[in-house]
Design a protein around this nucleic acid. Structure first.
Lengths: 243, 243
DNA sequence: ACAAAAGTGTTGACTATACACCCATGG
DNA sequence: CCATGGGTGTATAGTCAACACTTTTGT
């Protein structure tokens, strides 16, 4: 385990990241499973180094898990109830992993666990990534790090489910205002993919022709060559976001 | 000075509040001037107690300064650059107030100033209050606590000007979505006051009749009795927000 | 030639804004 | 009875969704 202390990290403040990806008409979130026993699932998270800005910390956490730099991310909420701690989770880990901890130095364990069981404020970001570019990379804490359909998440620790729900709500609101959807798509895409994405995020359907008109009228897309898929129908155009 | 330490407060995290009030077609913000020499102006702020939630801390800070409870408030941004400290301000205070500090115990000063000169993350809220109900109340840190027109603020310490600007931007966005404007108005008001408020916040003008229609069509107002002002014109109706 | 799906054009409903008018109030 | 500002109705323009039609592709 890494050395957690207030020399290197800001105490009592954590960053939690809801990383959204989109594929096959499904909106997915990257979820980590701890490599200790007890079936503990949670959002990718980390702490803020003393010599590091908030967004920098989030970008570092994201880079560790996805391999990507300069990810689009948005702060959407702080969580900071007075009784907001990891203690339940840590208790459970201790119970399920007595064998593992038996082999470790008592002082080290005490140190780490004291840090982790503090009352924590979580600064929460959601990130939008091109799922094709991501290679989920486990940290030393993780047994697995995988995409889960946002509607089929495993049970998450602490209030992480609530965090995901709020991230989705926030994403919806921001999608209406800004053109950030591009971050979830590959560089070139067809209009149907944009429509699928919107329909997935908002859980509704749109009329094909009106949707196309609405998006094109935004004036943010360049029309490129056609995409021949082999299907026996008219080939759709590829688009790319203007720079 | 109060005893700052990590037993009672979460270290390296502060709360800054932009408190908005409205009167005479002016949007105002409550600004504190430190009672030490050096002309230091800043937003009402404070720290989070270990046994206190984030919003609770903000409400406490607001109550101390305004006397009001259950104030409408909204978190709009965190500030957390790596080099974000009070050190410049503290340096200036020290220089301007050598006489004051000469009389104090060295250890106490060192303690307080070490706390205050840490690298800080600011959790920023804006609050909307009925300016008539507020009695600005100085804390022991303040020489004055007064309303300033948002367009005639004194020079503010650190990045507090930037915080105010972002609060205003955030307020504008939320006004469009939600009906939170009521928090800036007295219980009973006439339509012109609502229009003045919108025009002040958005720095524009609206057609009187269409504005009235738009607001009434929202269906959130109860029409009350007329308000006779003594002016030689038709008396406007008073309104109140529905519960 | 035909099925499937992409692209475009047209209509009608709804909404927002501009314009016009009438009404109450106190001097 | 007049100046002033408040309240309401109507016409027009602009926006958005429903419908209809044409085009392209591979079998």
């Amino acid at each position: 385990m890494p050395g957690f202390n207030s020399e290197t990290y800001i105490p009592q403040v954590a960053i939690d990241c809801v990383i959204f990806g989109f594929r096959d008409k499904k909106l997915s979130v990257l979820i980590s499973k701890l490599h200790l026993k007890g079936e503990i699932y949670g959002l990718p998270s980390g702490f803020i180094k003393q010599d590091e800005g908030l967004e920098d910390a989030a970008q570092r956490i994201l880079k560790e898990r996805t391999g990507l730099s300069e990810i689009y991310l948005e702060h959407f909420k702080n969580f900071g109830n007075a009784n907001r701690t990891n203690r339940d989770v840590i208790q459970r880990i201790m119970e399920y992993n007595t064998d593992f901890f038996a082999g470790l130095d008592r002082f080290d364990i005490k140190n780490e666990f004291e840090w982790l069981s503090q009352r924590f404020i979580s600064i929460c970001y959601y990130a939008l990534v091109d799922i094709n570019k991501v290679t989920p990379t486990k940290t030393e804490m993780d047994e697995s790090l995988e995409w889960y359909d946002i509607h089929a998440l495993p049970g998450l620790m602490m209030d992480h489910k609530e965090i995901v729900d709020l991230a989705l709500e926030s994403l919806r609101q921001n999608l209406d205002k800004n053109i950030i959807i591009l971050n979830l798509l590959p560089e070139k895409f067809i209009m149907k993919e944009v429509q699928d994405l919107y329909e997935t995020v908002f859980e509704t359907t749109y009329a094909r022709n009106n949707f196309q008109k609405k998006i094109l009228d935004l004036g943010v897309l360049d029309r490129l060559e056609k995409k021949f898929t082999g299907a026996q129908n008219k080939a759709p155009y590829l688009y790319r976001f203007k720079k």
